[in-house]
Computed example of a mutant assay.
Amino acid sequence: MPRPEAMPGSTITLDFRLSLTDGTEAFDTGDEPLTCTLGDGTLLPGLELALYGLRPGEEQTLTLTPEQAWGERRQELIKEMPRSNFPADSELEAGQILAFRLPDGEETMGTVLAVEDDRVLVDFNHPLSGQEVVFQAKMLEVDNSALPDDD
């Protein structure tokens, strides 16, 4: 019986690593492989496309453009905020990544770019936006049992 291949709707388990083109590691599943269903939004569409057709044991490495990954950096996502929006006793410094609550109750992350006496500059772009990303994946399992039969 042939090994199943990954396709939209497959439940997959894989090890993967994301790095910048200079080799700087951005993410690695390490000892905890990721299990998800292709198309459920867990992975970016560009990452999912790289997995279609892979069978257990197969590996794929490719470089994604910013558009295929987290998009270009957007200047409008860099916001100047009053220092008074942050707790008075918080030790803010450039490079810190903080959680922010949005008006709809959702949470997002922002990177502090600069701190002055009365204002803080925060970048709400994804840290990998504007970057080419190297995606290395090893497919461990593919389960197509939940997919409709083709007959």
Score class of each variant (00 low, 15 high):
residue 59 E to Y: 04
residue 104 D to L: 10
residue 93 E to L: 04
residue 73 R to W: 00
residue 83 R to V: 14
residue 32 E to P: 02
residue 109 M to A: 12
residue 110 G to S: 07
residue 82 P to V: 01
residue 100 F to N: 09
residue 80 E to F: 01
residue 86 F to Y: 13
residue 43 L to E: 01
residue 71 G to R: 08
residue 60 Q to M: 14
residue 90 S to K: 11
residue 94 A to R: 02
residue 64 L to K: 02
residue 29 T to C: 01
residue 112 V to E: 07
residue 42 T to N: 06
residue 70 W to T: 02
residue 114 A to Y: 01
residue 54 L to N: 04
residue 27 F to P: 04
residue 70 W to P: 02
residue 54 L to D: 01
residue 101 R to T: 15
residue 31 D to L: 09
residue 29 T to F: 02
residue 27 F to V: 05
residue 52 Y to F: 15
residue 59 E to V: 11
residue 49 L to K: 15
residue 97 I to H: 14
residue 45 P to E: 01
residue 80 E to S: 13
residue 95 G to K: 14
residue 36 C to Q: 09
residue 103 P to K: 14
residue 98 L to Y: 05
residue 55 R to I: 04
residue 100 F to T: 10
residue 92 L to G: 07
residue 112 V to N: 02
residue 74 R to V: 08
residue 75 Q to K: 13
residue 84 S to W: 03
residue 60 Q to W: 01
residue 99 A to R: 15
residue 53 G to P: 10
residue 22 D to E: 12
residue 105 G to C: 11
residue 71 G to C: 08
residue 78 I to G: 05
residue 104 D to M: 07
residue 65 T to V: 03
residue 47 L to W: 11
residue 26 A to M: 06
residue 101 R to H: 01
residue 35 T to I: 05
residue 80 E to W: 09
residue 84 S to N: 08
residue 109 M to N: 11
residue 114 A to L: 14
residue 41 G to V: 08
residue 100 F to G: 13
residue 39 G to P: 09
residue 58 E to L: 10
residue 106 E to S: 14
residue 56 P to D: 08
residue 62 L to A: 00
residue 63 T to S: 13
residue 29 T to M: 03
residue 65 T to Q: 06
residue 57 G to I: 10
residue 25 E to M: 14
residue 109 M to D: 12
residue 23 G to S: 09
residue 49 L to F: 04
residue 78 I to W: 03
residue 99 A to I: 12
residue 79 K to Q: 15
residue 86 F to D: 08
residue 45 P to T: 06
residue 51 L to C: 13
residue 64 L to P: 01
residue 44 L to Y: 02
residue 40 D to I: 12
residue 41 G to C: 11
residue 42 T to D: 02
residue 27 F to N: 05
residue 113 L to Q: 15
residue 86 F to R: 05
residue 92 L to A: 06
residue 104 D to V: 11
residue 82 P to W: 05
